[in-house]
Design a protein around this nucleic acid. Structure first.
Lengths: 334, 334
DNA sequence: CTGTTAGCGCTTTCAA
DNA sequence: TTGAAAGCGCTAACAG
């Protein structure tokens, strides 16, 4: 059972390949009703599916864009992907989603693989350490849009959360509540991932601006699975924080795990706020106050932007960094 | 700035296309050290990335498999995808993931699109109503593996949860606790999606086997966003259930939303169990008892199976349905 | 209105 | 040890 090709259809319908091609691409202008019928019939009987690969090779475009997320386990990633998908579907584009797992090496290899597969453009989420690659790619005029990654100069469009603002929104309610000993939990920061750095910077700024003590020991940045241990260490000390700000959903999970194991009550013993929402946070003990990113908007804009770049033939020298405003969802954890 | 091709590399290295091709594919056997060096150099200087599309066209294989999930919002889907990914990566295969959004039309169009893109095989999650398509595809000897979808006869390999067992595991603790008025919440079932049907059947069976009343009004199957309303209706009645079994994570969220709005305590007022775990369920009020599917194993097996089918040239007439055993995670919601 | 022709970028004999 | 040539399945002028 071999694949049926356009040639097979042509033979069956008694026309030439090119006529079938016309038909497939809905260029009926000068096509006789009868020919049309015959081709349609032949296609149906043979169960013919056009070979996109061959088409792409010829047309030098695949109508697919590649998306490389830093870590698919973050709700943030899934939500953004969903909204990119919507835009793509409306424009007859397809998505090739890859997960870099926070690993620059993986990111690099995915970039190469996606370009080898001839995607028409790329949307990339943070990971660090491939600046040289981006510059090289830029020289070849290949379209990329970055989400949540700083870059100087901005040789590609960059969309990111106003991370400082997000940290401020998350920490403010804690301060309002009168608590002064505030710690932070973040997944690893060793690779200089912009959003995490900015959130930490924002956090420190808020404390300083409010004349609160900034205890470096309370700023925990560690691999996801080491966070609980690090928290244990802090708890062994004399001086303990009475509130924590978690910079994303994964670190929040670890924080909650720890508090629960220690039988610490929220917010009586420890207040908690975090960035990134999850439907389940409404039902935790108590509901957790979070800062929500406008993921829908960000994904949509990223998709629109990349389609725009793909449409133009020439990239600009530099682009703007667009910042998005987060919003606070008050629940009972402060 | 046009794309650099193998021809460009060949010219720069002063060899022919075919020699470059040999090099790319590591067939160095008879290649002079010097030629090798020159080609390597040329590739580096030009930043050449081989065109997979062209290669695929020639070789009639893409080394990618397509995955169509019924609904990407289920944790179940994401987890399975992750484990499929792992296997694929080890075998130098890539993944094209699509989300059918519980819509058979979408599923159909994704199947066609993926086949047009010449994926080497397909892993498909439940949605219903495309049986004719599968049969047609089967005739052309194209490999598919189904996850969580029944099919009679099983013309393709099928991997699914033992859904009856899962329902039993989830309902048993409720019965143990002495509660007898048990309801069920499920996302819509109108399209005859096997796992949901089986879970409901399993649920009914357990009740009957235990001599408990089976109140059809307490079996709520509705679109996600109508679940809360339906629950309201039940609550307006005289007779109210004192426990609920949610057939998946999405219906659990709606159930919890309702209970919270009504200020109902778990498990004092209403006991809750569900199928599918989430890290956050450990921190809800109280932690929710769930039945966990062996997603890692299922995804891995699906991937191994599809690679095996791709490796063989000929499909079997029929295959077995392999069932996976769920496990209970006891927490405090019963 | 339909067919002929010339590739898209790569692999793969086979010959040199 | 390397190159020439044919062709994967399709599109896009251009002829007819």
């Amino acid at each position: 059972m071999k694949k049926v090709t356009m040639q097979d259809v042509a033979k069956k319908a008694n026309v030439s390949k090119s006529t079938v091609s016309q038909f497939i691409n809905c260029r009926y202008e000068y096509m006789a009703e009868d020919t049309k019928k015959r081709i349609e019939q032949a296609i149906y009987e043979l169960g013919y599916i056009p070979n996109q690969i061959a088409k792409s090779l010829k047309q030098k475009k695949t109508s697919t864009i590649g998306v490389i997320v830093a870590n698919i386990l973050h709700m943030f990633s899934t939500e953004i992907i969903r909204s990119i998908e919507d835009v793509c579907e409306n424009n007859d584009f397809h998505l090739f989603v890859c997960n870099a797992d926070d690993d620059p090496k993986k990111e690099r290899s995915y970039i190469e693989m996606l370009m080898a597969k001839q995607v028409d453009g790329l949307i990339i989420f943070p990971t660090s350490g491939n600046a040289d690659l981006y510059e090289k790619i830029k020289k070849s005029n290949f379209p990329i849009v970055f989400l949540d990654r700083k870059m100087d100069p901005p040789i590609y469009p960059i969309l990111m959360l106003d991370n400082e603002k997000a940290a401020q929104l998350a920490v403010d309610p804690i301060i309002q509540s009168g608590k002064t000993k505030i710690g932070l939990v973040s997944t690893s920061v060793t690779r200089g991932i912009t959003p995490r750095m900015e959130r930490i910077a924002g956090f420190e700024k808020v404390l300083v601006n409010n004349g609160l003590p900034l205890n470096k020991d309370w700023i925990i940045t560690a691999d996801r699975h080491e966070i609980v241990d690090r928290l244990e260490k802090v708890w062994e000390g004399e001086d303990r924080p009475s509130a924590f700000f978690a910079t994303n959903d994964l670190s929040l999970i670890e924080l909650l795990k720890f508090l629960k194991a220690k039988n610490l009550r929220i917010p009586e013993d420890v207040s908690v706020t975090a960035i990134d929402d999850s439907p389940f946070l409404d039902f935790s003990t108590p509901p957790i106050t979070v800062v929500k990113q406008p993921t829908f908007e960000m994904g949509k804009d990223a998709a629109i932007k990349i389609l725009e770049l793909i449409g133009n033939k020439q990239l600009d020298e530099e682009y703007e960094i667009k910042r998005y405003l987060p919003s606070l969802i008050k629940r009972g954890s402060v």
